[in-house]
Design a protein around this nucleic acid. Sequence first.
DNA 1: AATGAATGAGTTTTCATTCAT
DNA 2: TATGAATGAAAACTCATTCAT
Lengths: 215, 215, 215, 215
Amino acid sequence: MPKIKSDDIRPQRRDPAATRKKLLTAARREFAQNGLAGARVDEIAARAGVNKQLVYHYFGDKDALYLAVLEWVYEEIRTQERKLNLEGLPPERAIKKLIESSFDHLAAHPDFIVLLNDENRGGARHVRGSRKLEAMHSPLVSMVSHILADGVRAGVFRKSINAVHLYISIAGLSYFFFSNTPTLSAIFGKDLSSPSERRARRKHVVDLVMQSLRP
Amino acid sequence: MPKIKSDDIRPQRRDPAATRKKLLTAARREFAQNGLAGARVDEIAARAGVNKQLVYHYFGDKDALYLAVLEWVYEEIRTQERKLNLEGLPPERAIKKLIESSFDHLAAHPDFIVLLNDENRGGARHVRGSRKLEAMHSPLVSMVSHILADGVRAGVFRKSINAVHLYISIAGLSYFFFSNTPTLSAIFGKDLSSPSERRARRKHVVDLVMQSLRP
Amino acid sequence: MPKIKSDDIRPQRRDPAATRKKLLTAARREFAQNGLAGARVDEIAARAGVNKQLVYHYFGDKDALYLAVLEWVYEEIRTQERKLNLEGLPPERAIKKLIESSFDHLAAHPDFIVLLNDENRGGARHVRGSRKLEAMHSPLVSMVSHILADGVRAGVFRKSINAVHLYISIAGLSYFFFSNTPTLSAIFGKDLSSPSERRARRKHVVDLVMQSLRP
Amino acid sequence: MPKIKSDDIRPQRRDPAATRKKLLTAARREFAQNGLAGARVDEIAARAGVNKQLVYHYFGDKDALYLAVLEWVYEEIRTQERKLNLEGLPPERAIKKLIESSFDHLAAHPDFIVLLNDENRGGARHVRGSRKLEAMHSPLVSMVSHILADGVRAGVFRKSINAVHLYISIAGLSYFFFSNTPTLSAIFGKDLSSPSERRARRKHVVDLVMQSLRP
DNA sequence: AATGAATGAGTTTTCATTCAT
DNA sequence: TATGAATGAAAACTCATTCAT
């Protein structure tokens, strides 16, 4: 929406919120492409089209900017999870929807993986120090727990499946595929990044998990 | 083979092979800890206890050293795979052994994951350029293919399971757990790196895959 | 004078004189602690609790602010000198009082020294450019001159003592002690900043000068 | 002395000791002129005519370089003190020589003062952390102590003069004159840096101290 | 009068790499 | 083969100052 002030030709001058967002977006790309150590503050500022000093003005330093990006992508995931609405669904449909949306989210946001990799190498140093992330509990584990119980009761799922590990498995089956596509493609001599391969993978993951849950 | 040179008091002076190995070991640690961009050539030389220039002497440059490390860890995996001897086993035992040894290898060599992450972010640029890696085909995919066929014939596995994707799934279920332990632990508020959690995970992965293969 | 503006809760909003003074006080501390080059305009504004831009509003730039601080401390000294009232005293009492008050002033205002050091390194560039300081002649040199003459006439002081140099000596004997306390303490392995050491120094300075004036 | 190696046209290539010394000399000038905070590492390297990185190679960082300079000037002073040979002299000649050489050393090395000023503002942080300086005790205080005792015994000095404070006074009477010449000149409207003024000051200092010691 | 955003030039330090011995 | 000196480019971060409101 254009600003009302008609005599201001230059767009968005003095718009702190917009500047912050531009920096954050640029940082997300740069960190995803080059990692924490490989990312360049200069480049982030250039991508955002603002002065380099503003990185420090708004975020403090490179690490704090990295954390802000992490908080952003985690928030995206939580938002997506909240939108799932699995409560009303029959157990099998619920799990299937969860698997699919988990796969689709990674497909749509491939940078999430690459941003997390650095964080994991560093022992989750930023995540552990974040108040914001501490408050962002995922509702999914307990939801999965309930769905599993419902499924067992309904006789469609086998017993003694650990909800935390199932959640990790669902994530991992998609995550590894996306994160390691380049080396897997090179090793197998087959481009796994094509749409058809991606569809095949999605189907395989859904099948694998669903079949494994049968009583 | 002991060195004859009697007047050389300090051990391993002028021992090219040993120096090369020391550099490689040091590089593996440094790259695993700090990534490709974050690793320091100075630090690698210091860890190896040799002069920095020898990195260039033996390997050419930092990227070539990184590739040498990648080739090393891939070779380790292939060696482990060759040792598996799945041929004689009944299908179910064979797959189970494959899953377990896949998990155990990552548990024993956690740096493999972290070394590959950078390579994947970079589009597998080093791997794709390597003659050596090209020659190191994994025998496992075709082996899995045969095992699956045998299992279907014996009536213990269901049909239409893709061997490549099953292989990727087996790897991914362990890989993701190990690679994301720090952030998962932080998010779940539960230390997943403990031996008991690790055992539980191993069991879960074996169960998940085995159950999914049932007809 | 209390402000009338009734709806203004925070005190001293829009109080130019107070803001100026707060800036000056903050600048004095910051310059004393970090020198001209080491002082930070940001820090000065923060210490003063006002916006950084006001430094430029009120003083022009960092150098002008530094000069304002110098003028302030010089004015303090002149004020103290004017309060001395040496005229009526017998020559020996007058000199003694001068020495003591010179020592005491430095003891009370240790930042004076440190502020002047930078100015001296820079060739007194600010002081020489200041109209205000030009007008602030010290009355003391001519006063010392008269006291010396009186003392000689009264037979209590020896002849041919240069008033300017005596003034410099009186200042220097205290100045050096205060300015170099940290390094002298480190070198002598003895804390010269303690009250007892300070008292001893004061006595020594008075004695030294007084004894040297004897005929 | 020219290097023997005749075929080496470029002078002093690969001469670590010379490089170190050039850096140290350049640093001394730069620190003296601009202080610790005001000095520029770039400028020091440029003055030395070597690559900036060598500052870090040889000294570690800017602070360590500053300490190296401090150690150098202190060593100069100790060397000069050792050369004094006051032992054989009669007490009055000994003290006079000490005053004069103290004055002359500062006249010859005016940067000593300015280098110390920053160190004192910083609470002697570098000096206190230096092993080297800890070992460089000045022999002068105990020497002054003995001279004073000899003078009292010989009836040429009065009693109860503290050696440490006399040493500080002798230093301070010269130090303050040199350190504050610019502002004193500006305030007194008289150039105190001229040779004649310097001679007058030297005489005054010697007189003042010597007269103060009379019984 | 007062504020916070924005800037450009600079400042220390780092780093992969090459040179000379 | 091995070493330490030397380099140039670039990195993160800082800072005095100005702009827009």
